[in-house]
Design a protein around this nucleic acid. Structure first.
Lengths: 111, 111
DNA sequence: AACATAACTTACGAATGGTAAGTTTAAAAA
DNA sequence: TTTTTAAACTTACCATTCGTAAGTTATGTT
């Protein structure tokens, strides 16, 4: 597609980047994980408790993907324990506007 | 999860709505279809041509879901032909801010 | 010493997605 | 007017992703 939309950008590869971006942040549970981390760093078990319905398997998988893409950082706590902490990086934090836009869209369109 | 984020909302069911919303618009190809319809109504074949890599099967399926959720309308052209036209509804159009937020996020985070 | 908890990992069936070929109706070409 | 071509799906089938549940390893608690 040619990308000449009336949106405020026309950089050359924006379509594929947009595509990749929305496919990535749209993967199952991604939105909730990012949302949950918006109010501060969390442990694995805290995320598991807060995000209703997610399984350990998918939480692990999604967190690994987020770490790989540098949206989330992983820190081992109190060295020689199994505790870890996940936190949004600056890059991850800057997704806040996207989340706000979705929340605003929901609010606008309530029946 | 408790929803008491420092985002600008605290309505009661916003978490599940947010979850549903992002899971819905995050389904495979949804983002591209909505994006593509942002610059005006399109025929099925136009969408298929513009969205690189999507198959007829998934395009049909996603469009049906979008119509069901009233983000997109479907119009049969020149009655007694097979031609159809898909267009964003007002509800669909109001996702523009979300798309813009994603594009802005990409622009901010370019290496 | 026995049990619990944290953070995974593995196995496997179910749901979703990709690829390709087939269908139906209508319009265009020969 | 018979034959092609095209639009918009459908169907069938295999591959990838997801969900559920049980198992693992190392530390912490009773």
């Amino acid at each position: 597609m040619d990308c000449n939309h009336n949106l405020k950008t026309d950089s050359k590869h924006i379509c594929s980047n947009y595509h990749e971006a929305i496919e990535f942040i749209g993967r199952r549970w991604m939105g909730m994980i990012i949302y949950s981390l918006m109010d501060g760093p969390k442990r694995f078990s805290e995320l598991a408790d807060e995000i209703n319905g997610i399984s350990d398997r998918l939480l692990t998988e999604r967190l690994n993907e987020l770490v790989k893409e540098e949206l989330v950082s992983k820190t081992y706590l109190e060295d020689s324990s199994k505790k870890v902490e996940y936190a949004l990086t600056e890059r991850g934090m800057s997704l806040k506007k996207v989340i706000e836009a979705i929340l605003a869209w929901i609010a606008e369109n309530e029946k």
